[in-house]
Amino acid sequence: MAEEASVVEEGLPPSQTPLVSVSFERNVNWKQKYLEAEPKALGITQIGLSLFQIISSVLFMSKGLSVTPTGIPVIILSLLVLIAGSLTVAAQNLHLPTLRACLGMQIVAVPASITNMILALVKMNDIPYSCWQYYYDQNSTSPRESCHNIEGTISHFSSECVVINVALVTISITVAAYCCKVTNCCSPAPKMPVITVQAPPAQL
């Protein structure tokens, strides 16, 4: 479709010019569509949940409660999601390059959150052998309650991380869909029909 589809034909004398013409013009408010996604709330949620995962992973690593090496990958992937959340909030200014950067980071955040979800499932069966070994080295014949508590804590925490990453995947897909609409990567820019009514020529 041409930039302007108008019924008015050039070169016609005024007596043959139609009284009504229709043209299609770019919608000047098309970027406002992004604000319908509530990007501030979604971005802050992404940032908060990512920080929670980063801090928790650091604490588990510092206390030696992580047997499988999942802590560092979780921290790196959560940082990517955190950056995506920051761009989601920054894109509220509707600056087109920022919106495109936000779209790119949200696409990256989806597999990052899925990978974190898989790592959380792996960690769910992460048993702190050092705890059991410590008590058996002390000639104890029965498992200690503290080891059971640590196992339960790790299991519940991992389950919580799975739910968190499901939420992060959903948020990333939602924001990416709105960014895609605004940056016109999936469809051409929307146009609005403009109807022009012309006054009839004065009768002499």
Rank of each mutant, 00 (worst) to 15 (best):
L49C: 00
S86T: 15
A37Q: 03
I47W: 01
V74A: 09
K40W: 09
E25S: 04
L49Q: 10
A90T: 10
I47H: 00
L42H: 10
T98F: 13
A41L: 10
E38L: 07
E25A: 05
S56F: 06
M61W: 14
Q32G: 01
Q16A: 13
S78M: 07
Q16K: 09
S21C: 07
F60N: 08
F24D: 04
L51Q: 05
K31G: 00
A41D: 07
P39I: 07
S50V: 04
L51H: 00
T17N: 01
L94I: 02
E38D: 14
R26Y: 05
L77D: 06
P97S: 13
V20H: 01
I54E: 04
L19K: 07
V81I: 15
Q92W: 02
T70A: 09
I83W: 07
S50Q: 02
F60V: 14
F60M: 14
A90L: 15
Q16R: 08
S56Y: 05
L59K: 08
N29F: 11
V20C: 03
F24E: 03
T45H: 04
Q92K: 12
P18M: 05
Q92N: 10
S66H: 02
E38R: 14
W30K: 04
S62I: 10
G64H: 07
S86K: 08
T88L: 04
A41T: 13
L77M: 10
G43F: 03
I76V: 15
S86L: 15
T98C: 04
G85L: 07
R26V: 13
P39H: 02
T68H: 07
F60D: 13
L42F: 06
I54K: 06
I76Q: 08
V20T: 12
K31L: 10
T98W: 07
T45R: 14
N29V: 00
Q16T: 03
S50M: 04
H95I: 10
L82W: 12
R26G: 01
L65V: 04
I83R: 13
Q32C: 05
P69H: 03
E25V: 14
I44Q: 11
G48I: 00
S78W: 09
F24C: 02
S62V: 12
G71S: 15
K31S: 01
A41H: 05
